[in-house]
Structures are given as C-alpha cells and as structure tokens.
C-alpha cells in the first residue's frame, strides 16, 4: 500500500480496565483514502477514532502514525503535539462536547488560535468556511442556542478550519435533516478530492457509498469482522443482518401492512 498514515496492529482497548471497547483491531489507512467504519452502537467506532486522533492509546498491540510508533509521552513535546494536531482533526459525535466557547465564532477559531496560525489567515479561513457552510448568521450566537444540525455544522467548521490532512468524523450525519446531511456529504467529497484522508464512523448505510472507498465492519464483539469496497459490503445482507445494520421497515400496500428487512442497495438498483 502507498504511504500509510495510520497502522494499527492487534490493538486492544478497554474503559476502566474492565469494559472492552476494541479487541484486536488491525487497520491500515493510506494517504488520500476515504474510509467508512460501520457498526451498531457501542461496537467501538468512536474509540477507534479517538485512538487515531491520539487522545487515547491502545493497551495492547501497536499503533503507528506517519510511520512512527505513537505513544502518549510523544505529546509532551510541544512541537510534535502541534504538528500532529495540525495534521489530524476529529469531529466528535456529540457536538455539545466540541462547542465549549461562549460564541460560535470563538469555537470555530479556537483550534487555529491554539495552533499558532496567523490572525489574518484565521480570518481568511473563517470567511471561506462561513460561506461554504452558510453559518454567517450564527457567528455571534452562543452554541447552546443552536439546533442540532447547526451545532454539527459548527463542530465540523471548528475542525475544518485547522485544515487537517486527515479528517476523522464520528457519526457526522446522525439526527440531521436530509438537506444538512447532503451539505455535509458534499463537503466530505470535496475535502477528499482536494487530497484529504477521510475516515468516517457511521451506522447510516445510505451515505457509505458516497463517502468511502473502503468499508470496515465492526461486530458487537468489538472486532473488525470484514472489510472491502462499499458495494461488496452493502450487498452482503447476512453480514449486515448479523451486525445489526440492516434496516427493517414496515410498509403498507393498499390495505395490508407487512414488515421486511431491506438493504441499502435496493435504493440504487
């Protein structure tokens, strides 16, 4: 594979040493790739993204970032920490966690300010992002007054403004209306076309094909059960059913209602 950015081998992680979150994960991410990590709730997707962002570290196994073994004490070196944070950006699952400043504008510019980006450049990036995400009227508002969709847009803006090479997104479209979902997908596609590596965790199968070249499926046992191209993964109905990813719908036809599972691909056939 060309130019691996992240390499996880047999990575294990547990919370409080008792509650396993990842059990033996092997994953390699190369520059410019679009990856989707899919799985049911609580299967370890967020934990994986936090490891890739250098916020937590595997208890067992190895984790290499940019070709070097990554350990917690590496972040004690200011230059390394700053360099890593400039390269890797994470959009958290809960936007309330990410929006901790008194106003939207302060939240968006928090990252580049901490990373020492020049003020004129911050202003330029802010103006560009405000235009793309259409959030100009939100800038002076406190984050708590925003709707969930607006919060998510602002959270994404607060990460994108750092202009990271690698963008990690934890369920970026959860609970969003179709128009906002579309806007975010377009943004991810555009970011990838400009050379960024995109890793998205989701259980929304409708967006997987658009935002990924490779899909990793997590099982409830916190392991990667299968990986492959989106078409191949989404066509494997048994795999999706076993891992709680299949949609089950109730339909009414004339005067009869019936319930049946359906796969994502039916929408595109």
């Amino acid at each position: 594979m060309d130019n691996p950015i992240f390499e996880l081998q047999d990575a294990h992680f547990s919370y409080l040493g008792r509650y396993p979150a990842l059990r033996g994960i092997d994953i390699t991410v190369c520059q410019g790739e679009q990856i989707a990590v899919i799985g049911a709730n609580g299967c370890g997707k967020s934990t994986l993204l936090h490891i890739l962002d250098g916020l937590i570290f595997p208890e067992r196994g190895s984790f290499k970032a940019f070709g070097k073994e990554l350990k917690e004490d590496a972040f004690n070196r200011a230059d390394f920490s700053r360099d890593f944070r400039k390269k890797v950006g994470l959009v958290f699952q809960n936007p309330d966690v990410q929006l901790f400043c008194p106003t939207v504008k302060e939240d968006i510019i928090f990252g580049p300010l901490q990373l020492g980006v020049e003020k004129g450049e911050i202003q330029r990036r802010l103006e560009a992002l405000v235009g793309v995400l259409n959030i100009g009227d939100l800038l002076d508002r406190p984050p708590q007054q925003l709707s969930i969709g607006e919060k998510r847009k602002v959270a994404i803006a607060s990460t994108l403004i750092i202009e990271p090479d690698i963008l990690l997104l934890d369920e970026p479209t959860a609970g969003l209306d179709p128009q906002t979902t579309r806007c975010i997908i377009d943004l991810l596609i555009q970011a990838n076309e400009s050379g960024k590596t995109i890793i998205t965790s989701t259980h929304d199968l409708h967006i997987v094909e658009e935002i990924s070249d490779t899909v990793y499926v997590f099982s409830p046992e916190k392991k990667i059960i299968k990986s492959g191209c989106p078409h191949e993964i989404l066509a494997d109905e048994q795999l999706l059913r076993d891992n709680n990813l299949l949609h089950i719908h109730s339909h009414r036809h004339r005067d009869k209602s019936h319930i049946h599972p359906h796969t994502h691909l039916e929408h595109h056939s």
Partner: peptide, 21 residues
C-alpha cells in the same frame, strides 16, 4: 462531559494556555 470536553480541547491543539483573538 468534563473528560470529553478536555479531549475535544486537546484535539484542537489546546496545551494548557488558551490563546484568544
């Protein structure tokens, strides 16, 4: 929340001394 917010701050380059515009 305390733990998660701190992680979110670290993730965007916070290193103990916040900068302000």
């Amino acid at each position: 929340l305390n733990e998660e917010v701190y992680k979110a701050m670290l993730s965007r380059g916070y290193s103990g001394e916040p900068a302000v515009l």
